[in-house]
Design a protein around this nucleic acid. Structure first.
Ligand SMILES: [Mn+2]
Ligand SMILES: [Mn+2]
Ligand SMILES: [Mn+2]
Ligand SMILES: [Mn+2]
Lengths: 218, 218
DNA sequence: AAGTAATTTTAGACTAATCTAAAAATATTT
DNA sequence: AAATATTTTTAGATTAGTCTAAAATTACTT
């Protein structure tokens, strides 16, 4: 039996290793889990015992095939619950992460299958992230960061890199949501800020914003 | 912060004390929690430290006002989730208990308020048990056990005392559900079995079944 | 190639929840 | 009112997850 904490570590390793296939240092893991390095080391050893990761002292950890499947299963649940919260319960996209963080650990295959059907087999969560299907496959759409955009082009907002409520509320305040059209007017070389037109309004966004907004050329 | 385990113990104390106001022995508590008496004693001490129960050595424990509110909150969540599972996800009433046992621990007041609204503020769960409202009040309907019925009368099934999947499946197999009409034809004095007519079919039910089925006179 | 700095692991301790076995208290029987 | 049986608590361990502080290893600089 896998514990809630183990699931959270495995998910963190998955994300830190960029979709599952590079070594993650115990320090990076500890940071992302808000624990200390010694705790991460202990956990990584336990996960290695259970064959969820391959771990070499001082080298870091990487998910095994089993570990990867667990990670994807948890992510699937997380994102499906997020869709439920937004589509069915009318939560705003900036409120759902913490609740999904809990719901993702509910254990029942039948529940997640039925939830998936109830939601109409969604392919993306409210933040534009792809939802793995029952087999763990997910749709890959090619998207770039706003920071990689070209002046003069028009894009559509398709996702966020940072789904913290702070960033999402910033987007709310500026009426940017999934599907919003963004025209790139000017890229400032000095500080990498970008002048864009959104909903008819011209605004400057910081480099930090530009790095956290995913777009697609229209 | 209250832990999941504490919530489960508090809920067990609530149920064992018959809606919150008589002493519960550590042995009874251990039985209901599938642990040993020593574990129950330890937990009851901790709950007493946190002021969720009053505990006197060798006498048992009883919920405080705070403890009672916690218990009712957990029960509210449990039963609302059960309604969700049956009404929205098409689960059968015999499948939902274990999943609700997990879901009842999700922490978000806003979630439960929105879920309640989404479900149309249901007053009873799929097993006929009343759902406490936001203030912890619940509708009390006078119901009796089938074992207390009178020969010749017609009743409606309004709930179950035992919501184990075994018992619920027994009812499924005999086409008895909430709202089903039950006519009492004969009460056997020898073994307390009862002859009833359900959906046009005459059948005998054991004393044990009769003690676990709640009915209301029509 | 040392020497210093940063990262990572180990050692030892703590809390939460559990167990077994023994001791203490209460309840029941003679 | 003893003696016996039952219930309940205590004592001491165990596992999961965490921490601090110290030791070991690796990485970076002269
Ligand atoms: Mn989580
Ligand atoms: Mn998301
Ligand atoms: Mn529970
Ligand atoms: Mn129920």
């Amino acid at each position: 039996m896998i514990t809630l904490t183990e699931e959270n570590y495995i998910k963190a390793i998955y994300h830190l290793s960029k979709h599952g296939k590079e070594m993650v240092s115990t320090n990076a893991l500890a940071d992302s889990m808000n624990t200390k390095a010694s705790s991460a080391t202990d956990m990584v050893k336990k996960l290695a015992d259970k064959l969820y990761v391959n771990y070499k002292k001082y080298q870091g950890a990487i998910l095994t095939e089993t570990g990867n499947e667990i990670a994807i299963g948890v992510i699937r649940k997380h994102r499906l619950w997020e869709v439920f919260l937004v589509d069915k319960l009318q939560f705003s996209w900036d409120e759902v992460h913490d609740i999904a963080e809990q719901l993702e650990h509910i254990k029942s295959q039948k529940l997640i299958d039925k939830l998936d059907a109830f939601l109409g087999h969604p392919t993306h969560d409210p933040h534009g992230d792809p939802i793995p299907d029952k087999n763990g496959d997910f749709i890959f759409i090619e998207k770039i960061k706003l920071s990689q955009s070209q002046t003069g082009e028009i894009y559509s907002c398709v996702g966020v890199n940072d789904s913290s409520s702070e960033f999402l509320q910033y987007l709310n305040n500026n009426l940017i949501e999934l599907g919003t059209k963004i025209e790139v007017l000017h890229k400032e070389v000095f500080d990498n800020s970008i002048k864009i037109k959104v909903n008819g309004t011209i605004m400057m966004v910081s480099s930090s914003v530009a790095h956290n907004l995913y777009i697609q050329k229209l």
